[in-house]
Design a protein around this nucleic acid. Structure first.
Lengths: 210, 210, 210, 210
DNA sequence: GATGAATGAGTATTCATTCAT
DNA sequence: CATGAATGAATACTCATTCAT
């Protein structure tokens, strides 16, 4: 009879937000942000249309919420207070982690790829006009820059061992391209990657670029 | 002052169609199929909204037209009535051609990537319900299958030279991944690929996989 | 620790009702009945949305409640069981009272003006379909008619003194117009009426029409 | 068979705009801006909902359009390039004109009164955020200020004749209040003002304040 | 062929009201 | 009594498509 405590309300809210975001992620990823409708998202989440607006102020903010949630989770997997020095073992671990997250978050990557293709939506989400993307309060760019720097340093150091014929920038480009290409292929593969080529590809990449 | 011949009419029609398709490609690629509007496309093409429907029965058919036109042109660059045997020089030429077309048709690849991400639209276009995609009358799949077969054969033959440690399937996967990754990077690069890395990457890929 | 008496309950209810009505009056007056939202009213009153429905059955009934409360209070300031004869002193007192209430209830007059402009809402509130407006149980019209009659009588008697050139109906019209015009000006004046023109206007009106 | 000329289109547009504005004015004036719906306006205008958006970008811009049109027309009735000096005959003419326009534009005054009661809407329309109100390109305030100045000058000059007991500011206030009060009464009067009191009131005002 | 006014189905969003706790 | 999550009907607005001229 007595009303719910504010903590109970908070729990309900958090649960509901995730429920909605999960349904929306599925829709956004598979039919695209613009083609996805609030009606369909609500139906999939098993709630009324209006309820979504109790949790997100607009369709765009719902998208921002999803991206934020996923990015925060993803970046959480990579040690942020690192010493900045990447050993070979750490490099290998990093690769394995990347592909692990590729598998776990395939829907999200699909969504992100679609979003980034379209400058307009992209800027509305990442730009200053609406909710700015951030991971634990820090802007997204900080993380990517930090990653890039460490990676560049790693390949530079490899040059010292491999000799003057080794072009570290080119090598890094080839590495990232291979990873990206594999990611794209995986994202588009209908369900699971055929056979054990997922694992074999990881090993091949590690063998080639470690 | 004699009336135009029917051939002249046909040429004018073809010219108009291309004008419209160019404007539409730009819009579809940059804001996405769903977010693009007929109004904006017509304005960019410098024609009225109604006129577009003189040339294309619907927005979807306009999209199909664009994809058809580009695919036909692209496949035209690869010899279809080939003997089915890929020499090393032909392989290298093929790679150079692929990247050449990547550069020439960047807008189109962007569009295609976006379309393929979204099952729904994709199926409406490629599926049996509406205009089926075809290149010079033959279904698209024939071409891709032919390419894949020749490529697989090429890598299988390389195994004979390289010895038993060489996994031809894996090698081919790595090759296509690298190409795809490079394509993705290029599609997303804002204007031109920085410096001469475009060319250097091509050489690196050729050097590695030829 | 004895349970509250029903009278205490009644007092608490009455207090709550007034709290809600005050918040609602502020909103209704400043943004209009339709643009005002229950959410905003509840927030301003410091209660939950649901609670408001414990005291008023609907948004419209809340409006009716406000108007009833204010009208009852206002009419209470004018002696209802009067002998029906208005002396010059009583006329002057009446004018002063009117302007006093104009000052005290500015928000309410603003609301009333807005409501009366809109036939639809007006009829839903004052009409027979919903809660009929009444002051202490008697319909509003009785009061206004009584006022009008006494006022008309007052000006008629003035004619006897002023001679045949005096048109009592016209004089009364000019009087009510001047009062209304002043009221309108005051309602729209941003905060306080500038300087001492509020008082000076009252004196001028009394001097002219008493 | 040939398409309409751009002049024909322009004529259609102007006609349609007025048709829509007339229907909207009726709705806005009688049920209020917020309570009025685009559906109802469209139905009254005998057009589809969507068409309105071919002529006005939003409901607010439709309102701005109406106010602009009416204000422009109204101000057009008052000689703008006046010498700034108001004779008694001109003063009388001005009063008659005002009441004439009051009669002709009753709907509009009703609308304006309702709008001005609600700060929020009012500011969105008159403020810098949306379409700024202007009359023939000049901001509205210029006209009102010019009017006020000439009027003030008129009453000041009357003081010179009437002697030191005459308070020009007070007199002007009484004058404007009477006019406003009459306007309000008229706006609210159901159909026509009863009897010949409309004309008689005008004469009374002229007699008193000229 | 060419134009753009006109339509109407569909979409995001709001908000009074209900109800389980 | 009190709360705010939940609903759904209603509303402003968009846009592919049609059609008279």
């Amino acid at each position: 009879m007595s009303p719910r405590t504010s903590q109970q309300f908070e729990e309900i809210r958090e649960e509901r937000k995730n429920l909605i975001m999960n349904a929306a992620l599925d829709q956004f990823a598979n039919v695209g942000f613009h083609a996805a409708t609030i009606s369909q998202i609500a139906k999939q989440a098993g709630i009324s249309k209006g309820l979504m607006y109790n949790y997100f102020r607009s369709k765009e903010e719902l998208l921002a919420g999803i991206i934020n949630r996923s990015l925060t989770e993803i970046y959480g997997h990579f040690d942020p207070d690192h010493d900045g020095y990447l050993t070979e073992d750490e490099f290998e671990l990093f690769i394995r982690k990347v592909f692990d997250l590729l598998k776990q978050k395939r829907q999200f990557w699909k969504l992100l790829l679609g979003i980034m293709l379209q400058r307009g939506v992209y800027e509305n989400i990442f730009g200053a006009t609406t909710v700015p993307l951030s991971v634990s309060g820090e802007p997204v760019t900080q993380f990517t820059e930090s990653f890039t720097a460490q990676m560049a340093d790693y390949f530079r150091r490899k040059q010292e061992v491999s000799g003057p014929g080794y072009d570290p920038v080119m090598e890094m480009l080839m590495f990232t391209n291979t990873v990206k290409g594999f990611a794209i292929t995986f994202i588009f593969s209908d369900d699971l990657y055929p056979g054990d080529y997922f694992e074999k590809t990881i090993e091949a990449i590690i063998k080639t670029y470690r």
